[in-house]
Design a protein around this nucleic acid. Structure first.
Lengths: 245, 245
DNA sequence: GAAAATTTGTCCGTATGTATT
DNA sequence: AAATACATACGGACAAATTTT
């Protein structure tokens, strides 16, 4: 093996960061494409002349970036991912937005309940606090991969039974149609980003430290009457949003 | 001090995760509101009966979530933050969007250069590859806090001298006006999220592991001709975007 | 199927560097 | 100048999961 540029100590840049940069460059260069994995931690430690823990810090950082994913007993896998594009517009719908990019899109009902609107939900839906609302917990999949999870609130009186309809057909748009709402439009969308919480990790199959894009969206019928307020968390490494003005 | 529930070993849940959950709950409960800080790592280690490194892992996880921020030599501070709202619409401008939320907004020129459009920039601006473009590196501040950093490309022939104009007045909108473009509108905006890179940490005063919201936006004049393509990175914990349809 | 080897995950202990108070 | 507290790195031990023998 030829000599190579070694990591340098006491330069103000931590060893683990130098090593992370080197490994990232190697991945981008395609050095590990044959196996799709990073060499074992012990091998990297030997190669860079550092302790295994230092390599682990570097790999942890790359894991944070979503570039690699460590699996106990197997190794550290290189992640490859393309982002699905979600247009945000009047006609924003989950399945339509990505319909041309994924072979199969599906909505899965995770849970549901009937409850009274708290201050936040009431304000968004334009209802008096305490009005009966139906809450649906759903997950959006594209090509068998979880992409988003949403909590949605609907006016309970207007969309009675939406839970079972959605469970059956897996689409809000179609559920609305079956319940007598032929069309609706996106009114406002708020977008923020956060670290994935415990529920995200499970539902979206993310690794700790991953990022979620969080949207708070209001859908209204053609008379401008709110029909759905939803809080959705998207796996940030699987999506991008586009706004066309 | 009364006895308290201790962390448990060999339960399948790592000690650092148990401790992170406990500290998070304490923060939310307001236990540390008097100081605004988490107790020292050594004190927490003693309290939970674990090694200090285990506490550090827990605090690192909370740092990832943006709940705390460790400062060398001082301690681990509890973060409290409100977000500036950026409307994304035809009239999207940095200073206008947050003008009613911050007392002072400012654009700072970090760097500039004249260069040839690469494939990406050429495609976005609708120019032939290799056309002369001006690149500005800018930082957006609100109330003396850095909020975003942007790389913008402009057709060089049309906006010659934009570098010095922007440096003087700190506003793209006003620079355009001085250069003969009275008005422009936002055409498209793409939004993704990523972990902050090294440059983000410096320019935006972020901690490692922080999140940035990344936008790729195209501004066009009233004839639909592209005038600016910009790639902007926002400190995710300081902003939210809203889309009104 | 069982055992061994491989690989990552967790925890402990220690030492030293660096920044703040 | 000294004390405090966070940052980095090393070494070792064992646990847990997976793959190979």
């Amino acid at each position: 093996m030829a000599a190579q540029k070694q990591v340098q100590r006491q330069t103000g840049v931590a060893l683990w960061r130098q090593i992370a940069d080197r490994i990232r460059a190697s991945i981008n260069h395609g050095d590990f494409d044959d196996t799709g994995m990073v060499p074992p931690e012990t091998a990297l430690a030997l190669q860079f002349g550092v302790n295994r823990h230092t390599v682990r810090s570097a790999l942890a950082a790359l894991g944070q970036e979503g570039i690699v994913r460590a699996v106990q007993g197997r190794g550290t896998l290189i992640e490859r991912k393309e982002r699905l594009n979600f247009p945000i517009a009047k006609r924003t719908r989950f399945s339509q937005g990505i319909g041309d990019q994924a072979r199969e899109t599906r909505g899965v009902l995770l849970g549901a309940s009937n409850e009274r609107a708290d201050a936040e939900v009431a304000r968004r839906l334009g209802l008096p606090e305490g009005t009966a609302v139906t809450r649906l917990e759903t997950r959006g999949d594209a090509d068998q991969r979880p992409v988003s999870r949403a909590t949605s609130w609907f006016p309970a009186d207007r969309f009675a039974g939406i839970e079972e309809v959605y469970r059956r057909i897996g689409s809000i748009t179609k559920a609305f149609r079956e319940l007598g709402l032929a069309d609706y439009v996106r009114s406002t969308t708020e977008i923020t980003a956060a670290h994935a919480d415990t529920a995200d990790l499970g539902d979206l199959e993310l690794s700790p430290g991953a990022i979620v894009l969080v949207t708070r969206a209001l859908n209204v019928d053609l008379d401008g009457l709110p029909v759905q307020y939803s809080l959705t968390r998207f796996a940030a490494d699987r999506v991008q949003f586009t706004v066309e003005n």
